[in-house]
Amino acid sequence: MTFARDQWYVAAFSNEVGRDLLARTVLGEPLVFYRTESGAAVALADRCVHRRYPLSESRLDGDTVVCGYHGFTYDPSGACVFVPGQQRIPRTARVAAYPVVEQDTLVWVWIGDRDRADASTIPRAPWLGDPRYTTVRGMAPLDARYSLLVDNLMDLSHETYLHGGYIGTPEVANTPITTEVDEDRGVVYVSRHMDDAECPPFYARSTGIQGRITRWQDIEYHPPCLYVLHSRIAPQGVYPPAEGDDDQAFHAEIVYAITPSTAHTTYDFWAVARDFAVDDESVSEYLYQSNHTVVMQDVTALNILERVITGEPERYQELSINIDTGGLAARRLLARMVESSTVEAPR
């Protein structure tokens, strides 16, 4: 399996990175994250050059990381600034430092060629930091390759079967989708519009809607990492009153950052931002617990699928149908990215 390295990936939520050292592995690269005393986020290779001791198991001294094994000390640029027992610091005594950008409460890291790291190409999720929205969030590690999570999120028909009783209803699987691909921007759009649908508990309990609903699911996938589901619901028959007018709808912006850790493990960062009941803590708690359950149902299913695929390579051939058009388009764009920066994924 190969990764698209010359791309931005989410390594953490902003509130995870602080004055405690945080270990994350992204695209097979062990990293350590922390904040300088001025608040800037730093990402360094998580291995001391001396005996490969993890810097994440070490300590901060001001803005420097002091290796917890033999005391080699590194500044935010990755340069070694102290070696125990001698004045001379070897020329090669440095660890890699990686470009980091904080945007929309997400910490993005660039693993590839530094000269190609353009922060303006990072896709946006502005609702996560918008005071008009309230957001719940979490992260679930998968013991499965990241492409399986991409497939999962691009085809929401599985909600009917895997997430019944939470977010799925019969209409999700039974409603046809439309798929568009913006080849220039490299974005896949998948839409499912349900004019008369059952209201799942996820929305019935959080919005108070009783009875049937109009429900729209509009997906944007910005490969390789960012996925946004624009979810809009309203009581059936009142939405939308006019084309483009959805003032009577409840809006939930459901964001996933899909970050490969290794060839067979993935970080599943998720967030649900809403523009309703923004001050109601009970709604926040319900949506957090409900979405966490949904995510863990996906984790369980994808971990099973990873074991099947790994244990039975090339034994079965996939069959794709109409609902897979978005996922197949995503695969094609990901393959194009991999071709432009091909490096074997560490196992």
Rank of each mutant, 00 (worst) to 15 (best):
V172F: 14
G186Q: 06
I89M: 13
Y203D: 00
T64K: 08
Q248H: 15
T105Y: 08
R347E: 12
P260M: 08
V343G: 10
L226S: 03
P84E: 07
S284M: 01
D104C: 10
A173G: 12
P99S: 07
S56L: 06
S191F: 09
D75K: 14
E253P: 00
A97G: 15
A140L: 11
D63I: 08
V238W: 03
E183K: 09
S206G: 06
D196M: 02
Q236W: 10
D143V: 02
W110F: 15
E29D: 06
E318A: 15
R47S: 14
L334D: 00
R47Q: 13
G129D: 13
D143I: 03
F82D: 04
S38D: 13
M1A: 10
S58E: 03
M1P: 04
G138V: 07
C48V: 07
Y74I: 04
I177N: 00
V228Y: 06
G326P: 01
R145Q: 13
L328V: 04
V32E: 00
P235I: 03
S206V: 02
I321V: 15
V188S: 03
D155A: 06
P223G: 07
L305V: 10
A329H: 07
I258C: 05
S261L: 01
E183S: 10
G168A: 09
T265N: 10
D155R: 01
D155K: 02
I321L: 15
V49D: 01
C199P: 04
D298F: 14
L27F: 10
H50I: 03
G165P: 11
G208S: 07
M337T: 01
V49T: 12
L128A: 07
V136Y: 11
R124C: 08
R132D: 15
P313D: 06
T64S: 10
Q103C: 10
R192L: 10
G112R: 03
S77P: 05
F202I: 04
D130A: 07
N174F: 09
V187W: 11
R5N: 09
L55T: 05
R145G: 09
S320C: 03
D6S: 08
F250A: 08
V255N: 01
T342C: 02
Y267L: 03
L60F: 12
Q210R: 12
A140Q: 10
Q248M: 12
V272T: 05
E339Y: 12
R124G: 07
F82K: 08
V95M: 02
I323F: 14
P176N: 06
A79D: 11
D155I: 05
Q236G: 02
E183N: 04
T325D: 01
F33Y: 12
G62A: 05
L302D: 08
S191A: 13
I209T: 06
T262K: 03
N322D: 12
P131G: 12
G78T: 08
T135A: 11
A23E: 11
A271D: 06
Q297S: 04
H251Q: 04
E171R: 03
E183L: 06
L153M: 12
T265K: 04
Y34G: 00
D324V: 00
H193I: 13
V190Y: 05
V17I: 15
I209A: 09
G28C: 11
N152M: 04
L60Y: 12
T300M: 01
G208E: 00
L106P: 02
H222W: 15
T121R: 15
E344C: 02
Y267D: 00
G85H: 14
L302R: 07
L153C: 09
A93I: 02
N322S: 15
T266L: 09
L328F: 03
